[in-house]
C-alpha cells in the first residue's frame, strides 16, 4: 500500500517534471540556450491559473499556457535574439529575467501560498483492485502521457518537426536549405514556455503555488535534462520518471536528506555517460 501510493505520487510528480523539463530540453537542443527563467515561468503559470480559476479549471490552465507561451515568444524576440551567439550572455540574461519574474510574482500575488482546488470532476478517488487512487493524480499522469505522444508526433511526423530536427543537427545547413530557422526559434521558445506554464497550472492543485517554487523546480528540471541528455525527448521522459521516483521516495523515507539523494543518480550517470542517458555527444 505504502509502495503503491508512493509509486503513484512519483509518477504524478514525474508527469509535472516532464512538462517542465521537456520544453527546457527542446529549447536547449535547438538553440543552445539554457533558459534559467524556466522555473520562474512554471511558477508564473501556476499563479495565473489561480487567478483565472473563476472561469473554470480548463480555462485557467489554457490561459496560463497561452500567456506563458506569449511571454516566451516575447523574451526570445526581444532578449535572446539580441544576444545571439553569446551563450553566457544568454544564460545570464534569462537568469536576470528569472529574478524579475519571481519578484514581480511576489509583488502581485503576495508571499502566502495559494491553494488551487482540483476540478470538481477529478476531486474524488478511483478504486482499482481494492486500492484507492486520487483521481487528479491519475489525470496528471494521463496528461503527461498525451503531451509526450503529441510532442513525439510533432517532432517526428510533421514538417515543422522535420525542420526542427534539421536545425538541431546543422543550423547553418538548414538555413541554407531555406528553412526559416529564426522563426523556428521563436516557435520552440513559445512551445517550451507554454508547456512550462501549463505544467505550473496543472501542478497547482497538488503542490499549491508559493514564492520559491521556481528555485525549487528549476534544479530538478536541470537534473532531468542532465540525466536524460540535452535535447532528447526520451531523455526528458526517462529523466523525469527517475527524478520523480527518487525525489518522492526520498522524501517519504528520509525527509531530511531527500535533496542529497538527488545527488546520487547525477554522479552515477555523469561518471558513465557525461552526455546523459540519451544524449548525443556535443563538442
Amino acid at each position: 500500500m505504502f509502495w503503491i501510493n508512493g509509486l503513484l505520487n512519483s509518477l504524478a510528480f514525474g508527469a509535472i517534471l516532464f512538462l517542465l523539463a521537456v520544453g527546457f530540453s527542446l529549447i536547449f537542443g535547438l538553440m543552445r540556450v539554457a533558459n534559467l527563467a524556466h522555473g520562474a515561468i512554471f511558477m508564473l503559470g501556476g499563479y495565473i491559473a489561480t487567478s483565472m480559476i473563476g472561469f473554470g479549471f480548463l480555462a485557467a490552465v489554457l490561459a496560463a499556457a497561452l500567456a506563458c507561451a506569449a511571454f516566451g515568444g516575447l523574451v526570445e524576440r526581444s532578449l535572446i535574439r539580441r544576444l545571439a551567439g553569446r551563450e553566457l550572455a544568454q544564460v545570464l540574461g534569462t537568469l536576470g529575467l528569472a529574478f524579475i519574474i519571481a519578484d514581480q510574482c511576489l509583488l502581485v500575488w503576495s508571499g502566502d501560498p495559494i491553494a488551487q482546488p482540483a476540478p470538481a470532476l477529478l476531486r474524488g478517488t478511483v478504486e482499482v483492485a481494492g486500492v484507492v487512487f486520487p483521481a487528479y493524480r491519475l489525470a496528471l499522469i494521463a496528461i503527461a502521457a498525451i503531451a509526450l505522444a503529441a510532442i513525439w508526433l510533432l517532432v517526428e511526423r510533421t514538417t515543422l518537426g522535420a525542420r526542427i530536427r534539421a536545425a538541431v543537427d546543422d543550423r547553418e545547413m538548414a538555413r541554407a536549405m531555406g528553412i526559416p530557422v529564426s522563426r523556428l526559434f521563436t516557435t520552440v521558445f513559445c512551445l517550451g514556455a507554454g508547456l512550462a506554464g501549463m505544467g505550473g497550472a496543472l501542478a497547482a492543485p497538488v503542490m499549491s503555488v508559493y514564492p520559491g517554487l521556481d528555485a525549487e523546480m528549476l534544479p530538478l528540471a536541470l537534473l532531468v535534462v542532465i540525466l536524460g541528455g540535452i535535447g532528447s525527448l526520451s531523455g526528458a521522459f526517462v529523466g523525469s520518471l527517475l527524478i520523480g521516483l527518487i525525489y518522492t521516495f526520498g522524501q517519504m523515507l528520509l525527509p531530511d536528506l531527500a535533496y542529497v539523494i538527488l545527488f546520487l543518480p547525477m554522479v552515477v550517470v555523469l561518471a558513465a555517460r557525461p552526455q546523459g542517458l540519451f544524449g548525443r555527444h556535443m563538442a
Binding site: A215, P219, L262, M266, L270, A271
Partner: peptide, 17 residues
C-alpha cells in the same frame, strides 16, 4: 565531467542541493 553550459547547469543544481 562536462564543460560550458552543462558545467554551469550542474554547478547550479549542486548549489541548490
Amino acid at each position: 565531467r562536462t564543460s560550458g553550459l552543462s558545467f554551469l547547469m550542474i554547478t547550479l543544481a549542486l548549489g541548490q542541493i
